[in-house]
Design a protein around this nucleic acid. Structure first.
Lengths: 367, 367
DNA sequence: ATGAAAGCGCTAACAT
DNA sequence: ATGTTAGCGCTTTCAT
């Protein structure tokens, strides 16, 4: 550290000029650090409780004094100290949101949905990013919890295994809503997409286009959505009596790089399938990029279907057939559930399953 | 509201079974809401100040008692209440980050850079999203400020005009670092990209490819980066004696939709240029998508260069020539500046300009 | 080396 | 209708 002065250069200025013109007086209030109810009380010659009552619009208050106090508060630029309020009331009107990442459009869209419900109701939304790291995630949740957010909306990282802390705060009555990446055994409300049904539909679409040797690029194995999508794929294949051995499943991940990696391996091993169902759009896109580099024609040689989570599908050529999830609505639903739990103070865990839509584009349609 | 019970179902359980086996005892601590130093003091028969001293590793404390207290704290799962600490100390070890959006990769990448500096130093990062809305932005900053974050890293929305609040807290000594979308007159450290130089280079690249009637799709007019990029474009054009009247500039924005809109207008008015320099990748992409729909060949008929802020450039066909900004490093730089200001308690506003790289792809290279 | 007590800004029960 | 007071959990003098 280069500098040894420890005082703020500006903080003393107001006190150096106790009485100046009214223009300066205005500047002073703005600069002055945090007016408190005590200041208001002293200024007006009333007690702090009177001020508190006025500010909180309580019953036992003379309308005249209330007006006086409120206008004074306005004049001095008073705003309540939420820290003190929280310490006292154990309610912050903040809610926390923890997501694994927001590099794809999926989580940002959900968050926007959450905000659009929360902000009008007077809640602020604090967002943290776990970077797909279980440890960071835990410390995020602890920070939020210790800072007394009134509730939490979370989508777990793909690495989360230890759930004891989450379980303890949930049992303690702390309102949590899980979405998208949920941990089944945690007893909270969950907002989900019907991954199974839509994966089934996507697979069946490929089958009906005449593709036979269809493979699935699987997501992380302990995330419910991965499991559901894989199951939907498998059941659709079975329904149409197509082969569903281990050779139809490839562990990938959720990113473009994952898709590229798996596809490169497949091509190298001469295992090119007829069609690919990617667990996410980025995975499907990664596979497409590699195939294009190898001159493999899509959808003529290989059909591709992805699964939302991205805006990339609109941009790639050929455009990617995909399932569109109602991301914004998921956020809204999660927010509503959380608000309900916060304001009724009672937890009735429920699962909400939202429906989506199927966007058939070029990548899966043989002409 | 359907439910009238107002008590939490679980919170009473511990007290219903005061003495049980040690296994249950363990469960109880976990469930019990917030052990305080008072609890520890009572439990050990010492005063709260002794406990506080032990926990904070102060000088005046008997090592033996300290050990006793610390191990008891561990045993009971004590963790300090940061709200109370903040109220007392005015230091939270949280910092706030406010960005206009995180639907593109740009801001998320910066935030990751910020986190990678902050987390190891014991700071938590609270993120808020202004949705490009000046009002939301202001209320975000107020929330963060009132919740006593130790400092703020911000990139302003494209609509921000009123700066009086920001000015007041800055003058008050509150540490702020601006990046990317900065407001020049706010006297804080700024982390910037050398937009001018790189815009100049991008434009010159197009000129050297033989394009002559080059237009610039401009960003929001009061953001410094828009201004710098437009100036870089203009100066490069002038250097090569190319026309730089109003017809070379089109107000767009920052999104794909903006690019589409402007390009559609240009085509409709029969004003197709030789080449386009988009203020951001999404804008350039939007223009490309519309041109492709109209059968206009890129780069043969029209060359295109974008400006980072997206991962889309890798996916579109033809791949998009673009400037790559050091997003992650910007985050790191901003975080370091902020830490320095927080920990020295002194503000020496400085501008840091980072350099980038030029990714020449298909969209701008005539064969 | 330890305890008692004040105080951070606020709300709410208790007085008047 | 208003004032007095206790207390939220913590740190920090000030006594002892």
């Amino acid at each position: 550290m280069y500098f040894q002065f420890s005082t703020c250069r500006f903080s003393e200025i107001p006190f150096a000029f106790p009485k100046i013109s009214s223009i300066f007086a205005y500047v002073l209030q703005v600069i002055m650090k945090h007016i408190t109810i005590k200041d208001l009380a002293k200024e007006l010659g009333v007690s702090i409780s009177t001020v508190s009552r006025a500010l909180n619009d309580k019953y036992d208050i003379n309308p005249a004094t209330r007006e006086k106090i409120i206008s004074k508060a306005q004049e001095l630029g008073y705003s309540p100290n939420p820290i003190a309020q929280k310490l006292q009331q154990k309610k912050s009107n903040n809610i926390g949101v923890v997501v694994p990442e927001f590099r794809n459009a999926f989580f940002p869209d959900v968050i926007t949905g959450i905000q659009d419900i929360m902000l009008p109701l007077g809640y602020q939304v604090l967002i943290m990013q776990s970077n797909e790291n279980a440890e960071t995630e835990l410390s995020n949740v602890k920070t939020l919890y210790n800072n007394m957010v009134d509730g939490l909306i979370i989508s777990f990282s793909s690495e989360t295994h230890k759930t004891s802390y989450y379980k303890s705060i949930i049992d303690d009555g702390f309102p949590i809503v899980q979405f998208n990446r949920v941990i089944a055994k945690l007893n909270t409300s969950k907002v989900l997409f019907d991954d199974y049904a839509w994966a089934f539909m996507a697979t069946e679409h490929l089958i009906l286009q005449g593709y036979k040797n269809i493979i699935h690029l699987k997501g992380p194995r302990h995330l419910t959505f991965s499991i559901s999508r894989a199951k939907g794929f498998e059941d659709a294949m079975k329904k149409h009596k197509l082969h569903t051995g281990d050779n139809q499943f490839y562990d990938s991940g959720v990113t473009i790089e994952d898709g590229k990696r798996v596809m490169s391996e497949l091509i190298e091993c001469n295992k090119l399938p007829d069609a690919i169902f990617g667990v996410t759009d980025p995975v499907a896109l990664g596979a497409m990029i590699v195939m294009k580099e190898h001159g493999i024609q899509i959808p003529k040689q290989v059909g591709v279907v992805g699964f939302s989570e991205s805006r990339l599908s609109e941009v790639i050529q050929p455009t990617l057939t995909t399932i569109k999830q109602p991301t914004y609505e998921m956020g809204q639903a999660a927010a509503k559930l959380l608000i309900q739990e916060i304001e009724t103070k009672i937890s009735i865990p429920q699962n909400i399953k939202l429906s989506g839509s199927f966007k058939i584009k070029q990548s899966s349609v043989r002409i």
